[in-house]
Design a protein around this nucleic acid. Sequence first.
DNA 1: TCTGATACCTTGACATCCTAGGCATCTTCC
DNA 2: GGAAGATGCCTAGGATGTCAAGGTATCAGA
Lengths: 115, 115
Amino acid sequence: MARHEQEQPEAELLQGTLDLLILKVLALEPLHGYGIAQRLKQITRDALQIRQGSLYPALYRLEKGGYLKATWKTIAGRDAKFYALTKAGERQLENERAGWERLSAAVRLVLETAK
Amino acid sequence: MARHEQEQPEAELLQGTLDLLILKVLALEPLHGYGIAQRLKQITRDALQIRQGSLYPALYRLEKGGYLKATWKTIAGRDAKFYALTKAGERQLENERAGWERLSAAVRLVLETAK
DNA sequence: TCTGATACCTTGACATCCTAGGCATCTTCC
DNA sequence: GGAAGATGCCTAGGATGTCAAGGTATCAGA
């Protein structure tokens, strides 16, 4: 528990959401890890702050699961690992999106229940 | 235990959602553990199935945190532990509800981002 | 030259959930 | 009177994912 509420960016991500967010962002365009975090921060107008300690393990997980394919590129003299969705990744994105829709609909039902 | 249904209930809850759901249901009326699970199942039209192995530890956690107050009652010859929100529990419910709103809004932003 | 942003990664702790059990009572139906 | 099923409580052990906190290195700008 101990959900210490901070006002700034979301203190804790709900477990399970990160994969969905990563997959969705990569469906827009291939990016490297650092760029993914930046993009999510930008899209959500600073509401979501992905931590590197969460991000890189998640990327590793997704790559190992066959949902992402990584390619090293050198951009401006710096090495960066670009990730792109695989076919399985696209399917997984749809799965996770559907799961999110179901769950958030259920939570909404509960929250909107009046006495 | 094999349940054959067209629509499977949510396999896994997003971590952190359970407390919110429990607090909200108890804000409607005090209930005992078993009743909470039933009520959530009913409200969400079977979309959410709370497992006892998740429920009771969560109740213990919330009670220990001062968000719930428990009272044993005997209903129809059976002992049941009724939980009710404390003042802190009401505040916590609002916190968690706000956190959920922020997070789901952020996720929605990401999901609705077109290329 | 020093700082901050960019870019990668790992380790260890910790919270939460799930599976899989256990126990007891009450009702229903044969 | 006996079995089955619903009701009601609980725990232990393991899996998983996130976080905090550290590390390395390159590049741009002051």
